[in-house]
């Protein structure tokens, strides 16, 4: 029975996630493991590669219209880089895209990062399952907030040439 086409339309868009590394940090094993796990969970994952600027990541997130941006950082530069990323997303009218962070982040930095606008911080030892579920929840929450299309677009200040 299960092999027959299902009646549910179930055609909802796949959850789309950008996985990014920023700054002078050449270690992407973790980012790739997470990217692959997200793919295997059925997400559409875009990986933008090493040593990106926060601005490059923000533009990619907006052009791809992703549901969530996931950043991996092992360099210790999380405060300045995340600040710039969140500022750029806002400038592009995309502050509704939740940003999450994983990597070697000191516990005492978690609260300040969240105050800055980082929605979730995954510390070393976090299970892939937890990352997947958190990203799924954030994506669904954002979609449930619904058709904020024009609202967010009209707030945009970043313009093309």
């Amino acid at each position: 029975m299960s092999s027959l086409p299902s009646s549910s339309r179930g055609r909802g868009r796949r959850i789309k996630v950008l996985v990014a590394k920023m700054g002078l940090d050449g270690h992407d094993r973790g980012a790739k493991v997470v990217a692959r796990a997200l793919r295997d969970a059925g997400f559409e994952v875009i990986y933008t590669g090493l040593r990106q600027t926060p601005e490059q990541v923000a533009y990619a997130a907006v052009q791809e219209d992703v549901d969530v941006v996931g950043v991996s950082l092992l360099s210790g530069a999380h405060f300045p880089l995340m600040r710039r990323l969140i500022a750029k997303l806002k400038e592009l009218g995309a502050e509704d895209i939740p940003v999450v962070l994983g990597g070697t982040i000191p516990v005492i930095d978690v609260e300040p990062l969240k105050k800055m606008g980082v929605r979730e911080v995954f510390l070393p030892g976090t299970s892939l399952k937890e990352i997947i579920e958190t990203i799924r929840r954030l994506a669904e929450e954002r979609r449930a907030r619904g058709e904020t299309l024009a609202v967010s677009a009209s707030r945009e200040r970043g313009q093309g040439d």
Partner: peptide, 22 residues
Amino acid sequence: TRGSLMGDRLRMQEHATDPGVF
């Protein structure tokens, strides 16, 4: 899983912030 891992963009990211490129 119908999931995907897309990396083409990685090789074009130098143009990401160029407003004339999408």
